[in-house]
Design a protein around this nucleic acid. Sequence first.
DNA 1: AAATGACATTGTACTTATTATAAATTTACT
DNA 2: AGTAAATTTATAATAAGTACAATGTCATTT
Lengths: 137, 137
Amino acid sequence: MNTLFQDLTNLLAQNDIRPSYQRIKILEYLHNNHTHPTADDIFLALIPEIPTLSKSTVYNTLDLFINNDLVKLLSIEDTEARYDILTNNHGHFKCMSCGEIYNFSIDIDSITTDELDDFLINDKNVYFKGVCPKCQH
Amino acid sequence: MNTLFQDLTNLLAQNDIRPSYQRIKILEYLHNNHTHPTADDIFLALIPEIPTLSKSTVYNTLDLFINNDLVKLLSIEDTEARYDILTNNHGHFKCMSCGEIYNFSIDIDSITTDELDDFLINDKNVYFKGVCPKCQH
DNA sequence: AAATGACATTGTACTTATTATAAATTTACT
DNA sequence: AGTAAATTTATAATAAGTACAATGTCATTT
C-alpha cells in the first residue's frame, strides 16, 4: 500500500501526536515539497483533496509540528511565515529578484561563540539574501 | 552644538538622501537605541518630539535606509519586522521566553559554501533562538 | 454497542502590521 | 516670489495570523 502514509502515521504516533487525516496530509505535503511553502500554499494544495480543510487547521497543525520539532519555521521572508520539514543542517538563500528560497548545506553546529555560553540555544538559522544565477543578466 | 545631529545629517547627504528632520530623527533613534526596535517602537518614541509624525513616514524612511544600506531588516521575529542600524558583523539571539534580542559577535564573512558560487550574496544573517540567562530558572 | 469525555476541526470574526494612494506640505531652484 | 519636485501626512485597503465558539470525531468505559 502507501508506505509513506504509514511511515508518517508512525512518526506522528511516536511523537504522541494523534495521526489525524489532516495532520498526515500536511506532514506528507511538507515531506514531498521541500519548497518552503507558506501556510496558504499548503492550504491551497490540500483543499482539492480535503475540501472541508480550514486554514485554522493548517496553522494549528504547523504550530503543533514546530513545537514537536518536526517542522522548522523560517523567518527569511518578511511578510509571511514559511515552513520546512526538519532535515539536516542547512542554510537558506532567498533570491530578492524571483523570491525563490534555495537550500545550501552548511555545518551550522560549527557556528558558535563563547559570548552565548550562558544561553540555552535551541535553534540556529543562517539566512543569505541576494540574486540567484537564473536572475543574473 | 549637537554634533551627532550634524554627523547624521552629513551621513544622509553622503548617501544622496535629503536630510529632512524626520529622517535625521529616525536615524538618530536607531543610532542611540541598538534595541532592534519595530516600526511602531520608533513611531511611539518620536511622536512626543514630532507630534505630526506619520507611521507612513516611519515605514517609508526605514525602506529608504534599508535600500541605502544604512539599516538592516531583521526577520528573526515572526510577527513584525525589526530594524538595526548597520554595524559590524554580528549575529542575533532571540530569547523565546522574554522576547529580547541580543547581539553576539561572529565572523559572518567566514560562513560560506561553494554551493553558492554562482549566487550574488548581498546579505548574510545568523539567527539563534533559545532562552537567555535571565529567563533560565 | 451506546454513552461519555477528550481531542480535533471548522468557520467566523477579529486583530494588527504593512501597503497603497491621494492630498497637503515643504523644499529647492529659477 | 513662483513653480516643480520631493516629502510628509492621513485615510483606506490588504492580508497574515489569532481567538473563540460550535461542530465533529475518536477512544475508552460501562
